Computed example of a mutant assay.
Amino acid sequence: MVGPEVYEKFIKHYTEKQWGRKATELPTSIIKRLPIRFMFNNNYFNDRYQGIPIGGYNVIIDKLIKTSEVRLDTCYFDNRDYFDRIARKIVFTGKIDEFFNFKFGDLEYRSLKFETEIYPVENYQGNAVINFTDRETPFTRVYEHKHFDFGDQPHTVVTKEYPIISSRKSDPFYPVNDTKNMNNYKKYQQLAYRQSNVIFGGRLGTYRYYDMHQVIASALKTVKNEVETLAT
């Protein structure tokens, strides 16, 4: 799509660092998420509205759970029978292979490690996120959080993001949607279809590499389908 020079400089090394494997072993859908433009529009996507909500996602989440009971530091699998009994339907957004006790083996995920530092300066990098596309730099991105919401604090908080191999004990972030894993996922998907009282959602529950707008759209569509089903 872009020729060898741009591919080598911006895509190949970053992709292999992020996913821990050769770019040729990954599905093309990963890079097709990004638009190719021959102009000076440097926005990430072509969407009309881009960025994060004013005040951050916490503002939205606080409103969504305002009337709900919320339990932190609670694992569904530690008390599965109890949680299965207290609701007619469960929305499960964890790993689908874990839900079925890894019956067909582990699906592969990539995880992340974050290193956060506070600097006594107003501005560290002048941007919310900078991606490091070279092979030598061990991290993929550096975030300077105040630029997400136009903060004017006299100091700044900076986070470096390192891609790492995911294990059963680490937090999974990205499903590895190569041929091998997708074939395995289809087996779990067949089991999921038989769970009439469980809704599987999110990146982990559906084993899909969603962007934020896509996962929100998927959730809204799922709710619509559920409401229409109840109405009939």
Rank of each mutant, 00 (worst) to 15 (best):
P4I: 07
E8R: 05
F10N: 07
H13T: 04
W19R: 03
R21Y: 00
R37I: 03
F40N: 12
N41F: 04
N42T: 10
N43F: 02
F45R: 09
F45Q: 09
N46C: 05
N46F: 02
N46G: 14
N46M: 02
R48C: 06
Y49W: 09
I52V: 13
Y57W: 07
K63F: 08
S68A: 14
V70N: 04
L72T: 11
D78N: 15
R80G: 05
D81R: 05
Y82D: 02
F83V: 09
A87Y: 07
R88Q: 14
D97L: 02
F100Q: 11
F102W: 11
F102Q: 04
D106S: 06
S111A: 15
L112A: 06
K113C: 11
E115I: 14
V129A: 13
E136L: 08
V142S: 03
V142H: 00
Y143E: 12
H147L: 14
D149P: 05
F150W: 08
F150G: 01
G151S: 01
V157L: 14
V158Y: 10
P163H: 11
I164K: 08
K169L: 04
D171L: 08
P172D: 03
P175N: 04
V176N: 03
K180D: 09
N181I: 08
N197I: 01
G202S: 07
L204E: 06
H213F: 10
H213N: 15
V215C: 05
S218G: 00
V223N: 08
E226L: 13
V227Q: 11
T232S: 13
